[in-house]
């Protein structure tokens, strides 16, 4: 149940936390201050108390981390799998969710500066990554056979993933295209709409004709798109919003429609 690493760090954490309380009371702490981190009373000398308690809490956090994520414990892993020998190869299969998660966190950080909608987009993607990551982690440990694990994971997640991904692609495409149409002139918007239509048709034909697409090309395209979104966000932040020049409404007699400003 409790791994060696957990015992080691939890022991250190408890000793340091106890030391912090002792230090607090011996350096002027009063009432319940050292026990309640200053909520009910003084904690004594701040620096030493903070250092000791900070170290203690960090150690205990690491301890909890170790006991919750038992995949970092080969003995526990072997016990869980019901095998005598500790596995020689990693159970953790390849996954693109860490990279997606990194871009999602990056999007959140940029969104914090740029626009709430960008931040929320990043947050939503982070939520999706968390669920997918958890499912991958669960499937990796389901059986000792990686192929069976993969099939099991897909059986649970594919009915959710495929419609959701399709909806997201359509929504993103519509949103991006609408922004472009709004930013270009009347003639430009017609050209853009035509190009986008041809692109959609072309990609659909490509998908229909090729049953298998090179994974590297697909990954490269997705990576380029993600980088483009981030770079676009950074550039937009740095350059700021473009200037708006609203039509001026000249003074006109009441009840007179000049036709300007519309």
């Amino acid at each position: 149940m409790f791994t060696t690493g957990f015992k080691f760090f939890f022991g250190i954490g408890m000793a340091l936390a106890t030391g912090a309380v002792f230090y607090g009371y011996t350096t002027g702490g009063n009432h319940m201050g050292p026990l309640s981190m200053g909520w009910k009373g003084g904690i004594g000398e701040h620096l030493g108390y903070s250092l000791l308690l900070g170290l203690g809490v960090t150690a205990m956090t690491v301890a909890l981390f170790l006991v919750f994520f038992r995949d970092a414990d080969p003995a526990a892993q072997a016990h869980y799998m019901g095998v005598e020998q500790i596995p020689t190869n990693s159970l953790v299969t390849a996954s693109f969710w860490p990279v997606v998660g990194a871009f999602a966190v990056g999007t959140m950080a940029i969104g914090l500066v740029l626009h709430t909608a960008v931040f929320v987009t990043g947050l939503v993607v982070c939520g999706v990554v968390a669920i997918e990551w958890l499912m991958d982690g669960w499937a990796d440990r389901a059986t000792g056979d990686p192929e069976a694990n993969r099939a099991l994971r897909n059986r649970v997640m594919a009915p959710i993933e495929i419609p959701a991904l399709g909806a997201a692609i359509v929504a993103l495409g519509v949103l991006a295209t609408s922004r472009i149409l709004l930013a270009t002139s009347k003639l430009g918007s017609v050209v853009v709409a035509g190009v986008v239509s041809v692109l959609i048709l072309g990609i659909a034909v490509l998908f229909a004709r090729k049953t298998r697409i090179n994974k590297n090309i697909l990954a490269g395209s997705v990576l380029l798109l993600a980088v483009a979104v981030l770079v676009g966000g950074i550039v937009a932040t740095v350059t700021g919003e473009r200037d708006f020049h609203p039509h001026e409404v000249h003074d006109a007699p009441h009840g007179t429609d000049t036709g300007e400003g519309h």
């Binding site: 500790i86 020689t88 990796d140 059986t143 000792g144």
Partner: peptide, 16 residues
């Protein structure tokens, strides 16, 4: 556990 695990070394070799 949804299945009886095979021998660890051979099964897990495919995981990497």
């Amino acid at each position: 556990m949804t299945d009886s695990p095979p021998a660890a070394n051979t099964a897990l070799a495919a995981a990497s």
